[in-house]
């Protein structure tokens, strides 16, 4: 059974069809990259998978671990191991970063039938995880993302991911706005968390990231469809030639 199976997915916003027949299968252990021009629907796909309410699914099916993903509310998806690193992480004034993560982790643990972590164990855990993204511990006690720089917000997303240990991570342009060092740190973080059991979908505009996180498959999204797929060399070609030359492959199978 595949971890994620998307079949002919159509979704719209305010009556405008954005996703127009997505097919994608992701197996445990794999890393997929999705590239594509601005506005092609990459974040929409990520949002539909995470359960963002603004989108209406008009056709198609998504199976996550063999179950209908759309039967689950966003928090259930998260508890079942789905994680979205936001393209624009949300600022939450007044809510302490580590408090938020504790609530989050314990909700997921409760769902898994694991006991709640107490303050001491939790602190030990996050202090270890915060090192993975080389983030200063002071970020633990700041309000979630409030006043964080663009790059700090992205790092914080990967930090959350490291603590929550998801099965399927969708990283929506986590590399945008990162300086060279941060890019390396974030990629190393993702690589450290990579295992045979989990999978990652990376949405990116830059081939550069894929030098650090080697994808198994690279997909090109155009106008709400995945129009081409290939190995990591496809990313290089896209970087060279742009997207104009890519046309939908007949009988595309992914």
């Amino acid at each position: 059974m595949s971890l994620l199976e998307i079949k002919n997915l159509h979704a719209s916003v305010n009556g405008n069809e954005i996703l127009r027949g997505i097919n994608l299968t992701v197996n445990a252990g794999e890393v997929h990259a999705i590239m594509g021009p601005n506005g092609s629907g990459k974040s929409t796909l990520a949002g539909v998978l995470a359960g963002r309410e603004a989108y209406t699914v008009t056709d198609g099916q998504v199976l996550y671990k063999g179950n209908n993903l759309f039967d689950m509310v966003p928090e259930e998806r998260a508890r079942e191991g789905l994680f979205l690193a936001f393209q624009y992480p949300v600022e939450i004034p007044g809510v302490n970063n580590s408090y938020f993560l504790k609530e989050s982790l314990n909700a997921i643990r409760k769902h898994k039938g694991l006991e709640q972590l107490d303050a001491i164990d939790f602190l030990a855990l996050i202090k270890q995880k915060v090192k993975i993204v080389e983030m200063d511990e002071s970020f633990l006690n700041r309000p979630v993302n409030e006043g964080f720089s663009g790059g700090e917000k992205k790092r914080n997303e990967i930090f959350h991911m490291a603590v929550l240990e998801p099965m399927l991570s969708i990283l929506d342009e986590t590399d945008s706005g990162l300086d060279i060092d941060a890019l390396r740190i974030v990629s190393e973080g993702v690589n450290k968390l990579r295992s045979k059991e989990n999978a990652t979908i990376i949405v990116t505009h830059y081939q550069r990231l894929l030098n650090y996180i080697i994808p198994d498959v690279v997909h090109v999204m155009k106008d709400g469809r995945l129009v081409k797929s290939g190995g990591k060399e496809l990313a290089l070609e896209l970087e060279d030639r742009g997207y104009d030359w890519v046309h939908e492959e007949a009988g595309q199978t992914v």
Binding site: E75, G94, E103, S104
Partner: peptide
Amino acid sequence: DEQIFYLRSRGIDLNAARDILTSAF
């Protein structure tokens, strides 16, 4: 709504998310 969705997407249920944001306020 965006804050609520962010919290929910990390496993926190709707009521708890509303509570957390209200308490923060």
